[in-house]
Amino acid sequence: MTIDWLHFTPWLSLGGGLLLGCSAAAFILINGRILGISGILGGLLKPRNGDIAWRVAFLFGMTASPFVTFLLLPPNLMQDPRIDVGYGTLAVAGLLVGFGTRYGSGCTSGHGVCGLSRLSPRSLVSTVTFMGVGFCMVYFMRHVF
C-alpha cells in the first residue's frame, strides 16, 4: 500500500465530515429523523400520506447545495469529478446501489454515519460488508482485470 498524497485532502475531508455529522445531528435532534439518503429517496417510491413533504424538503435542500457552493465557496475547493467508467458499467452500478441500499435498509449515510454513531450492530455489519465488497471490487477492477 502507498499513500496517494497528491489527492489526500485531510482538512477538507475532516471539515466536510464534521458538516455531515452536524447535519445528521440536527436531523435527529430537531426533526426526529435518521439522515439516510437511500431511505429518504426510496420512501418516495411507496408514498404514504403525511410522509412525503419532509422527504421532498430535505431533497430540495440537497439539490440547492451545488448552487450555494458555486456562490459561496472559492472555486478551487471544488474538485472536478473523475468518473472512469462508461454508461454500461454505470447502469449496472446504479441498479445495484438502488436495489442493494433498499434491500439492506441503508447506505453510507444511514448505516455508515448514523448507524455507527448510534452504535448499531446492524449498521456495523452493513458498513463493514459494503466497504469490504467495495475494496474487493476496486482491487479486481484496477489490479486484476
Binding site: I83, A93, V97, T101, G104, T108, M137
Partner: peptide, 17 residues
C-alpha cells in the same frame, strides 16, 4: 443488500447522497 450496494459503489464510486 450491503454486498450488492458495495459492488455498485465500488464499480462507479457513487453512493446515493
Amino acid at each position: 443488500g450491503a454486498v450488492l450496494f458495495g459492488a455498485g459503489w465500488g464499480l462507479a464510486g457513487f453512493c446515493p447522497g
